[in-house]
Protein backbone atom coordinates (compact mmCIF):
# COMPACT_ATOMS: atom_id res chain seq x y z
CA UNK A 1 0.00 0.00 0.00
CA UNK A 2 1.42 3.38 -0.97
CA UNK A 3 1.85 5.64 2.06
CA UNK A 4 -0.20 8.62 0.86
CA UNK A 5 -3.43 6.60 0.94
CA UNK A 6 -3.50 6.42 4.71
CA UNK A 7 -1.79 9.47 6.14
CA UNK A 8 -3.07 12.65 7.68
CA UNK A 9 -1.33 15.98 7.33
CA UNK A 10 0.55 16.61 10.57
CA UNK A 11 2.14 20.02 10.04
CA UNK A 12 5.46 21.17 11.53
CA UNK A 13 7.55 19.19 14.01
CA UNK A 14 10.96 18.78 15.53
CA UNK A 15 13.23 15.83 16.25
CA UNK A 16 13.00 14.58 19.82
CA UNK A 17 15.82 14.63 22.34
CA UNK A 18 15.38 14.72 26.12
CA UNK A 19 17.28 18.03 26.15
CA UNK A 20 14.42 19.49 24.05
CA UNK A 21 11.67 18.36 26.44
CA UNK A 22 11.12 21.73 28.09
CA UNK A 23 11.12 23.51 24.76
CA UNK A 24 8.63 21.06 23.24
CA UNK A 25 6.27 21.04 26.24
CA UNK A 26 6.33 24.86 26.34
CA UNK A 27 5.55 25.17 22.64
CA UNK A 28 3.12 22.35 21.99
CA UNK A 29 0.85 24.95 20.39
CA UNK A 30 3.52 25.41 17.68
CA UNK A 31 4.88 21.89 17.45
CA UNK A 32 2.41 19.54 15.75
CA UNK A 33 4.36 16.29 16.24
CA UNK A 34 7.72 14.92 17.33
CA UNK A 35 10.10 12.82 15.31
CA UNK A 36 11.68 10.14 17.49
CA UNK A 37 14.80 8.08 16.83
CA UNK A 38 14.28 5.15 19.23
CA UNK A 39 17.99 4.35 18.95
CA UNK A 40 18.71 7.25 21.28
CA UNK A 41 17.02 5.40 24.16
CA UNK A 42 19.47 2.55 23.73
CA UNK A 43 23.08 1.61 24.20
CA UNK A 44 24.71 -1.00 22.03
CA UNK A 45 26.37 -4.00 23.63
CA UNK A 46 28.95 -5.77 21.48
CA UNK A 47 29.71 -9.31 22.60
CA UNK A 48 33.08 -11.02 22.24
CA UNK A 49 31.76 -12.84 19.15
CA UNK A 50 30.90 -9.43 17.59
CA UNK A 51 27.14 -9.92 17.91
CA UNK A 52 25.28 -6.72 18.73
CA UNK A 53 22.24 -6.07 20.83
CA UNK A 54 20.51 -2.98 22.12
CA UNK A 55 20.00 -2.30 25.81
CA UNK A 56 17.14 0.04 26.50
CA UNK A 57 17.26 2.97 28.91
CA UNK A 58 13.78 2.70 30.40
CA UNK A 59 13.88 6.12 32.02
CA UNK A 60 14.60 7.95 28.78
CA UNK A 61 12.00 5.89 26.96
CA UNK A 62 9.32 6.65 29.58
CA UNK A 63 9.95 10.41 29.22
CA UNK A 64 9.44 10.16 25.46
CA UNK A 65 6.34 8.00 25.84
CA UNK A 66 4.84 10.63 28.15
CA UNK A 67 5.38 13.29 25.51
CA UNK A 68 4.02 10.91 22.87
CA UNK A 69 0.69 11.01 24.69
CA UNK A 70 0.52 14.78 24.02
CA UNK A 71 1.28 14.84 20.29
CA UNK A 72 1.66 12.48 17.31
CA UNK A 73 4.94 10.60 16.88
CA UNK A 74 6.85 9.65 13.76
CA UNK A 75 9.95 7.46 13.80
CA UNK A 76 13.27 8.24 12.15
CA UNK A 77 15.75 5.39 12.50
CA UNK A 78 19.51 5.76 12.71
CA UNK A 79 20.93 2.30 13.25
CA UNK A 80 19.51 -0.16 10.73
CA UNK A 81 22.35 0.13 8.20
CA UNK A 82 19.75 -0.52 5.53
CA UNK A 83 22.19 -0.71 2.64
CA UNK A 84 24.89 -2.99 4.06
CA UNK A 85 25.69 -5.61 1.44
CA UNK A 86 26.75 -8.00 4.19
CA UNK A 87 23.44 -7.70 6.05
CA UNK A 88 21.60 -5.01 7.98
CA UNK A 89 21.50 -4.62 11.75
CA UNK A 90 18.63 -6.97 12.59
CA UNK A 91 18.69 -5.97 16.23
CA UNK A 92 17.51 -2.51 15.24
CA UNK A 93 14.28 -4.07 13.98
CA UNK A 94 13.83 -6.06 17.19
CA UNK A 95 14.20 -2.80 19.07
CA UNK A 96 11.70 -1.07 16.77
CA UNK A 97 9.26 -3.97 17.22
CA UNK A 98 9.41 -3.38 20.99
CA UNK A 99 9.06 0.36 20.58
CA UNK A 100 5.99 -0.01 18.35
CA UNK A 101 4.31 -2.08 21.06
CA UNK A 102 4.60 0.90 23.40
CA UNK A 103 4.34 3.88 21.07
CA UNK A 104 2.10 4.07 18.01
CA UNK A 105 3.69 6.08 15.20
CA UNK A 106 2.31 7.57 11.98
CA UNK A 107 5.21 6.34 9.84
CA UNK A 108 8.84 5.33 10.15
CA UNK A 109 11.87 6.18 8.05
CA UNK A 110 15.53 5.28 7.54
CA UNK A 111 18.54 6.72 5.77
CA UNK A 112 19.63 5.59 2.34
CA UNK A 113 23.08 4.42 3.33
CA UNK A 114 25.12 1.93 5.32
CA UNK A 115 27.41 1.84 8.33
CA UNK A 116 28.37 -1.83 8.74
CA UNK A 117 30.50 -4.06 6.55
CA UNK A 118 31.81 -7.59 7.02
CA UNK A 119 35.42 -8.29 6.10
CA UNK A 120 36.62 -11.35 4.16
CA UNK A 121 37.77 -12.90 7.46
CA UNK A 122 34.25 -12.59 8.93
CA UNK A 123 35.05 -9.69 11.24
CA UNK A 124 32.86 -6.60 11.11
CA UNK A 125 33.88 -3.00 10.53
CA UNK A 126 31.85 0.08 11.29
CA UNK A 127 32.19 3.14 9.10
CA UNK A 128 31.70 5.46 12.07
CA UNK A 129 29.28 7.56 10.05
CA UNK A 130 26.61 6.91 7.48
CA UNK A 131 28.14 6.27 4.06
CA UNK A 132 26.18 6.66 0.82
CA UNK A 133 24.98 3.88 -1.43
CA UNK A 134 26.38 3.79 -4.97
CA UNK A 135 23.65 4.57 -7.51
CA UNK A 136 23.90 1.20 -9.23
CA UNK A 137 21.56 -1.61 -10.25
CA UNK A 138 23.16 -3.93 -7.70
CA UNK A 139 22.44 -1.47 -4.90
CA UNK A 140 18.87 -1.11 -6.15
CA UNK A 141 18.43 -4.89 -6.20
CA UNK A 142 19.68 -5.12 -2.64
CA UNK A 143 17.59 -2.24 -1.31
CA UNK A 144 14.20 -2.86 -2.93
CA UNK A 145 13.26 -6.11 -1.17
CA UNK A 146 14.52 -4.73 2.14
CA UNK A 147 12.49 -1.54 1.71
CA UNK A 148 9.44 -3.54 0.68
CA UNK A 149 9.82 -5.62 3.84
CA UNK A 150 9.92 -2.42 5.91
CA UNK A 151 6.78 -1.19 4.12
CA UNK A 152 4.82 -4.16 5.43
CA UNK A 153 6.52 -5.06 8.70
CA UNK A 154 4.64 -2.40 10.69
CA UNK A 155 1.14 -1.03 10.49
CA UNK A 156 2.70 2.36 9.66
CA UNK A 157 4.16 3.20 6.21
CA UNK A 158 7.89 3.43 5.56
CA UNK A 159 9.83 6.36 4.06
CA UNK A 160 13.38 6.38 2.71
CA UNK A 161 15.55 9.47 3.27
CA UNK A 162 18.17 10.92 0.94
CA UNK A 163 21.52 11.65 2.61
CA UNK A 164 24.55 13.87 2.25
CA UNK A 165 27.79 12.55 0.80
CA UNK A 166 31.25 14.02 0.48
CA UNK A 167 32.93 11.35 -1.67
CA UNK A 168 32.81 10.94 -5.46
CA UNK A 169 30.15 8.37 -6.33
CA UNK A 170 30.94 4.91 -7.58
CA UNK A 171 29.19 4.14 -10.86
CA UNK A 172 29.45 1.25 -13.24
CA UNK A 173 29.67 1.84 -16.96
CA UNK A 174 26.28 0.16 -17.51
CA UNK A 175 24.36 2.91 -15.69
CA UNK A 176 24.98 6.59 -15.15
CA UNK A 177 22.28 7.32 -12.60
CA UNK A 178 22.38 10.35 -10.40
CA UNK A 179 20.73 10.66 -6.99
CA UNK A 180 17.29 11.61 -8.37
CA UNK A 181 17.31 8.78 -10.92
CA UNK A 182 18.17 6.36 -8.14
CA UNK A 183 15.50 7.66 -5.75
CA UNK A 184 12.85 7.51 -8.50
CA UNK A 185 13.83 3.90 -9.25
CA UNK A 186 13.52 3.00 -5.58
CA UNK A 187 10.09 4.62 -5.43
CA UNK A 188 8.95 2.91 -8.64
CA UNK A 189 9.97 -0.53 -7.43
CA UNK A 190 8.64 -0.32 -3.86
CA UNK A 191 5.70 1.05 -1.90
CA UNK A 192 7.76 3.39 0.25
CA UNK A 193 7.38 7.13 0.50
CA UNK A 194 10.18 9.66 0.36
CA UNK A 195 11.51 11.67 3.25
CA UNK A 196 13.07 14.46 1.24
CA UNK A 197 15.85 16.05 3.26
CA UNK A 198 16.11 19.37 1.50
CA UNK A 199 19.14 20.44 3.48
CA UNK A 200 20.99 17.22 2.62
CA UNK A 201 20.12 17.69 -1.02
CA UNK A 202 21.22 21.31 -0.95
CA UNK A 203 24.56 20.27 0.65
CA UNK A 204 25.13 17.77 -2.16
CA UNK A 205 24.26 20.40 -4.78
CA UNK A 206 26.71 22.90 -3.29
CA UNK A 207 29.47 20.36 -2.63
CA UNK A 208 29.26 18.74 -6.06
CA UNK A 209 28.23 21.76 -8.09
CA UNK A 210 24.84 20.91 -9.56
CA UNK A 211 21.60 22.88 -9.78
CA UNK A 212 19.25 21.64 -7.02
CA UNK A 213 16.18 23.06 -8.77
CA UNK A 214 16.88 21.30 -12.07
CA UNK A 215 17.63 18.05 -10.24
CA UNK A 216 14.59 18.19 -7.93
CA UNK A 217 12.32 18.98 -10.88
CA UNK A 218 12.86 15.36 -12.00
CA UNK A 219 11.75 13.90 -8.65
CA UNK A 220 8.59 11.82 -8.31
CA UNK A 221 6.77 14.50 -6.30
CA UNK A 222 3.69 12.52 -5.34
CA UNK A 223 5.79 10.19 -3.15
CA UNK A 224 7.20 12.92 -0.92
CA UNK A 225 5.53 12.51 2.48
CA UNK A 226 7.90 14.36 4.76
CA UNK A 227 10.53 17.07 4.38
CA UNK A 228 13.56 17.66 6.60
CA UNK A 229 15.12 21.09 6.89
CA UNK A 230 18.21 21.99 8.91
CA UNK A 231 21.29 24.16 9.01
CA UNK A 232 24.97 23.36 9.23
CA UNK A 233 28.49 24.68 8.78
CA UNK A 234 31.04 24.92 6.00
CA UNK A 235 34.31 23.09 6.58
CA UNK A 236 37.19 22.73 4.11
CA UNK A 237 34.87 24.04 1.41
CA UNK A 238 32.17 21.45 2.13
CA UNK A 239 28.76 22.27 3.50
CA UNK A 240 28.23 19.76 6.31
CA UNK A 241 25.07 18.08 7.53
CA UNK A 242 25.37 18.81 11.27
CA UNK A 243 21.95 20.28 12.21
CA UNK A 244 23.66 22.94 14.23
CA UNK A 245 22.12 26.21 13.11
CA UNK A 246 19.39 28.09 11.29
CA UNK A 247 18.14 26.90 7.94
CA UNK A 248 20.04 28.71 5.13
CA UNK A 249 17.98 31.15 3.05
CA UNK A 250 18.67 29.06 -0.04
CA UNK A 251 16.98 26.07 1.60
CA UNK A 252 13.96 28.15 2.63
CA UNK A 253 13.72 29.24 -1.02
CA UNK A 254 13.92 25.62 -2.20
CA UNK A 255 11.20 24.70 0.28
CA UNK A 256 8.90 27.47 -0.90
CA UNK A 257 9.50 26.44 -4.50
CA UNK A 258 8.84 22.74 -4.00
CA UNK A 259 5.88 22.86 -1.60
CA UNK A 260 3.09 23.46 -4.14
CA UNK A 261 4.38 20.51 -6.16
CA UNK A 262 3.89 17.96 -3.37
CA UNK A 263 0.30 16.70 -3.23
CA UNK A 264 0.92 14.18 -0.47
CA UNK A 265 3.23 16.04 1.86
CA UNK A 266 2.23 15.47 5.49
CA UNK A 267 5.00 16.99 7.59
CA UNK A 268 7.98 19.32 7.70
CA UNK A 269 10.55 18.55 10.40
CA UNK A 270 13.17 21.02 11.61
CA UNK A 271 16.15 18.90 12.63
CA UNK A 272 18.41 20.09 15.39
CA UNK A 273 21.35 18.61 17.24
CA UNK A 274 20.94 18.76 21.03
CA UNK A 275 24.29 20.56 21.30
CA UNK A 276 22.79 23.41 19.27
CA UNK A 277 20.18 24.21 21.93
CA UNK A 278 22.45 26.27 24.21
CA UNK A 279 24.24 27.81 21.22
CA UNK A 280 21.12 28.93 19.37
CA UNK A 281 18.82 29.54 22.29
CA UNK A 282 15.10 28.88 22.43
CA UNK A 283 14.00 32.12 20.72
CA UNK A 284 15.99 31.45 17.55
CA UNK A 285 14.76 27.87 17.39
CA UNK A 286 11.15 28.94 17.80
CA UNK A 287 11.62 31.56 15.09
CA UNK A 288 12.67 28.77 12.73
CA UNK A 289 9.60 26.72 13.64
CA UNK A 290 7.34 29.75 13.16
CA UNK A 291 8.80 30.43 9.73
CA UNK A 292 8.27 26.80 8.88
CA UNK A 293 4.68 26.97 10.10
CA UNK A 294 3.92 29.97 7.89
CA UNK A 295 5.25 28.03 4.89
CA UNK A 296 3.15 25.05 5.95
CA UNK A 297 0.06 27.29 5.95
CA UNK A 298 1.09 28.59 2.53
CA UNK A 299 1.32 24.97 1.41
CA UNK A 300 -2.18 24.17 2.69
CA UNK A 301 -3.55 27.23 0.88
CA UNK A 302 -1.83 26.18 -2.36
CA UNK A 303 -3.24 22.68 -2.09
CA UNK A 304 -6.74 24.01 -1.44
CA UNK A 305 -6.51 26.25 -4.49
CA UNK A 306 -5.21 23.43 -6.68
CA UNK A 307 -7.90 21.07 -5.42
CA UNK A 308 -10.56 23.69 -6.22
CA UNK A 309 -9.18 24.13 -9.73
CA UNK A 310 -9.15 20.37 -10.20
CA UNK A 311 -12.74 20.11 -8.93
Amino acid sequence: MLPQKSLRKLGVGVNYHWDFQDLIYTHLDRIDYIEVSPDIFCEEVIAANNSRHFQLDARKLQDALALGRKCPVIVHGLGLSLGSASGWNADYLTMLDNYEEQQPFCWHSEHLGFTLVKNPDGSEDHAGLLLPMPFTAEALDLLCPRIQHLCTRYSAPFLIENTTYYLPHFSSHAQAWDEIDFLNQLLARTDCGLLLDLYNFYCNAINFGFDPYAALARLQFDRVIEIHIAGGVTHEGFLLDVHSSEVPEEVWALLEWILPKLPNLCAITYELLEQALPLMGEARIIAQLDRCKSLWNYYLDCRKELDNVAA
Partner: peptide, 16 residues
Protein backbone atom coordinates in the same frame (compact mmCIF):
# COMPACT_ATOMS: atom_id res chain seq x y z
CA UNK B 1 33.63 -4.54 -8.22
CA UNK B 2 30.71 -5.92 -6.24
CA UNK B 3 28.61 -3.77 -3.90
CA UNK B 4 30.26 -5.50 -0.96
CA UNK B 5 33.71 -4.64 -2.33
CA UNK B 6 32.65 -1.03 -2.91
CA UNK B 7 31.46 -0.80 0.69
CA UNK B 8 34.60 -2.47 2.08
CA UNK B 9 36.67 -0.04 0.03
CA UNK B 10 34.74 2.98 1.29
CA UNK B 11 34.98 1.91 4.93
CA UNK B 12 38.69 1.17 4.51
CA UNK B 13 39.32 4.51 2.82
CA UNK B 14 37.49 6.44 5.49
CA UNK B 15 39.73 4.75 8.05
CA UNK B 16 42.74 5.89 6.05
Amino acid sequence: MSLLDVQRSLVGLTRG
